[in-house]
């Protein structure tokens, strides 16, 4: 793919081809947990995108200074600092979002999309490209979160962003916003992504890609579950 080297290609990559949630299967925990309402999905997406861009930029700027042996702890500290920053900002200005996201907000620290991009992209590329990669990946993440939460909110509560959409006569299927609904809708979305990709003529990889995990390189358990 020639476009991959251009700045625009780096940006678009995260939106479709390497969509972090549907294709790389990263960041599954927040995807399942907070997509019960569009407001939450949007808030989570924006918060994670902000952290992703900032941490990608800082890590890429420091990539020559951080010794390879301690890079993972160093990355985690940088990411955790930005997450703390975002957490405090949201607490101060959008307390409703803080209440809705709860513990999942500080848990952006261990969202593997962020550490994964730091390890796979930012530690090998320049600052501008890393920022664009963060933006693309973050937007890809946000889009999936918003779509998933739209489906779940519409089916589970009959509303969108809090506004009543479904007629009152249609009683909502509450199970869609409960945990089982999360797994189910996520499974269907992933199947849809695979279906679309097959239609476009690509051959998608259907197995869980352990290699996308940030700790894959130094993880002896890589491939253990796949035999």
């Amino acid at each position: 793919m020639k476009g991959k080297t251009t700045n625009f290609g780096v940006f678009v990559n995260g939106l479709l081809k390497e969509n972090p949630v549907l294709r790389l299967v990263l960041g599954t925990c927040p995807t399942l947990a907070i997509t019960t309402a569009v407001f939450n999905g949007l808030g989570m997406g924006i918060a994670a995108t902000f952290v992703l861009i900032c941490s990608n930029m800082v890590i890429s700027a420091l990539r020559k200074l951080i010794p390879a042996q301690v890079r993972l702890p160093a990355f985690i500290v940088i990411i955790a600092s930005f997450v703390t920053l975002v957490h405090m900002l949201i607490k101060a200005y959008v307390p409703a979002l803080n209440d809705a996201l709860g513990v999942y907000l500080p848990l952006i620290t261990v969202n593997c999309i962020i550490l994964g991009r730091a390890e796979m992209f930012a530690s090998k590329n320049g600052v501008l490209k890393s920022a664009l990669d963060g933006l693309g990946m973050g937007l890809g993440f946000t889009i999936v979160l918003v779509l998933m939460s739209a489906v779940r909110e519409l089916v589970g509560a009959g509303t969108l962003l809090g506004f009543q959409i479904m007629p009152e006569a249609v009683s909502p299927l509450t199970v869609a916003i409960l945990p089982p609904g999360g797994f189910f809708v996520f499974g269907c979305f992933m199947a849809l992504a695979i279906f679309l990709e097959t239609k476009m003529g690509n051959k998608p990889n259907v197995n869980l890609q352990c290699g996308a995990c940030p700790s894959a390189d130094n993880c002896p358990a890589k491939g253990v579950g796949e035999a």
């Binding site: 299967v25 797994f183 189910f184 996520f186 499974g187 269907c188 992933m190 199947a191 849809l192 695979i194 279906f195 097959t198 259907v206 197995n207 869980l208």
Partner: peptide, 9 residues
Amino acid sequence: PFEGLPITL
């Protein structure tokens, strides 16, 4: 399209 991860979910 459900083969692999989607059906697991």
